[in-house]
């Protein structure tokens, strides 16, 4: 038995060591907001926050995350009480089929936390000083989230809008 802390709630579960954090949430706990796209860390649909940092939940084992604070898209907001990032995706129509959207939203929230901490990116001209969150910066920092419908222009707009209203992750 392991104990996972997800969206502030403790869950006891009995899992095979092979179970990814993604499968533990989806198949054992009914938290199906996080999506399985490629299952190889390439698409970002499974993105969760672990201790405030975004990761690919398909590429990590549930048994390795006892004691961690895990946040899934369900923990960000819910109908009637949306996280500003979720609201911005709605406002800007930042999706088409919607399958990649939970991963995009969680990744974008984690990304804004990284920007708030002054982390540079490959698009940053200057390594030393905090980057201004331009469209170019957003595209680079979000390159781990693929959208097969190619809703990218509206995703970038949504994140730019949310960046103005949120400064801290989750």
């Amino acid at each position: 038995m392991i104990t996972l802390t997800i969206n502030g709630e403790e869950h006891r579960l009995d899992v095979d060591p092979r179970t990814s954090l993604l499968d533990a949430c989806r198949d054992h706990l009914g938290l199906t907001g996080s999506k399985k796209g490629c299952d190889h860390g390439q698409c970002g649909a499974c993105t969760m926050l672990v201790n405030g940092r975004r990761i690919n939940s398909c590429l990590t084992l549930a048994v390795m995350h006892e004691g961690d604070e895990i946040t899934t898209v369900e923990g960000l907001g819910e109908p009637g009480n949306l996280h500003p990032m979720q609201a911005a995706f709605l406002e800007h129509d930042g999706f088409q089929c919607g399958y990649c959207t939970p991963g995009q939203v969680v990744s974008a929230v984690g990304m804004l936390g990284e920007v708030a901490d002054g982390w540079p990116s490959n698009a940053s001209k200057d390594l030393q000083n905090g980057a201004e969150l331009s469209g170019e910066e957003i595209r680079e920092r979000m390159s781990g989230n693929l959208c097969r419908c190619s809703a990218y222009p509206n995703i970038v707009d949504a994140i730019e809008t949310a960046a103005k209203t949120t400064k801290e992750p989750a």
Partner: peptide, 16 residues
């Protein structure tokens, strides 16, 4: 070194 790291993988992968 910072530049090389930032040129690799994705944000999610670099966090892990």
């Amino acid at each position: 070194l910072s530049r090389a790291l930032l040129a690799g993988a994705s944000g999610q992968l670099r966090n892990k």
